[in-house]
């Protein structure tokens, strides 16, 4: 069984988000780039499955669509434990374009389980995983918070409104992964960092594909009104304000 984890390169979650060029571009000055948090959790779960010989998982590959400047993020995934990596050498212009590229790579390389984070923390599109599955005409399971392999058969837990379901689909499939899939992201050890330097990164040139959307301008959220403080000795006033001023209870 071969697992592919698709990873996106995003600004560290504590980044102070700023824009340049009349708010049309994200300001990358001084930004730390990291593996998208949900992709990192997917990778962690994939490696846990590989660590358990009973699952029959033989390899974990990561794939990324991006220019050479995202190489450090790929190396980080290799340091955490992925066996090898694929990079499609192009700017990830939108979800449709990225999914087209990844679907092409997956067709060539063949994987049994394809894992994608449910969204990226920068564009918050929640589209890539589902799109890959439709391009390939294979099943997808979304909002996956658990993945195990029993007697060679993958079983997925998916979150539904007000509960969860255990489902199975035949391989190959795309698992679109959310919180819960792994407890905490695995951290690279020194040995892993050393080994990552020599692990193979295969580079594909992009195929001809379209983008269907374009970000044209960004804005920062409007600052909220200053906080109104209520005396801790008299919290009843808060209830009155919520009822009469905010009118929300």
């Amino acid at each position: 069984m071969k697992i592919l984890v698709c990873i996106s390169n995003v600004p560290d979650t504590t980044t102070k988000v700023k824009f340049v060029e009349a708010d049309t571009k994200f300001d990358t000055t001084g930004v730390q780039w990291v593996i998208n948090p949900w992709d990192e959790l997917s990778l962690t779960r994939a490696l846990e499955l590989k660590d358990d010989p009973s699952t029959g998982v033989k390899s974990v590959t990561v794939a990324h669509v991006g220019p050479a400047s995202s190489e450090p993020t790929i190396r980080k995934a290799l340091a955490i434990g992925a066996d090898d990596a694929i990079r499609v050498n192009t700017e990830p212009s939108d979800g449709y374009y990225v999914a087209s590229q990844l679907a092409e790579v997956i067709r060539k390389e063949q994987f049994d389980i394809i894992m994608c984070g449910i969204e990226s923390s920068d564009f918050n599109g929640s589209v890539t995983g589902g799109m890959i599955a439709e391009f390939m005409n294979i099943p997808s399971v979304s909002a996956v918070s658990g993945l195990k392999i029993e007697n060679g058969k993958p079983l997925l837990t998916r979150e539904i409104d007000g509960g969860r379901e255990t489902v199975s689909v035949p391989t190959p499939f795309v698992a679109i992964v959310q919180k819960g899939i792994a407890k905490e992201p695995r951290i690279a050890a020194m040995r892993g960092i050393m080994m990552a330097r020599t692990k193979p990164v295969k580079i594909y040139e992009p195929m001809e594909a379209q983008s269907l959307t374009k970000f044209i301008v960004f804005e920062k959220p409007r600052p909220r009104a200053a906080c109104k403080y209520i005396d801790a000795e008299n919290p009843g006033l808060l209830i009155q304000l919520l009822q009469n001023e905010a009118k929300v209870i």
């Binding site: 449709y96 929640s126 979304s142 409104d161 679109i176 269907l212």
Partner: peptide, 24 residues
């Protein structure tokens, strides 16, 4: 909707109809 079910279906529909998504 941008809920769990919507997020599961909308991207597939996007490819099926070659329709761009404005999500959320």
């Amino acid at each position: 909707s941008n809920n769990n079910e919507g997020k599961a279906i909308a991207p597939r529909l996007s490819v099926s109809l070659k329709a761009g998504i404005g999500s959320g």
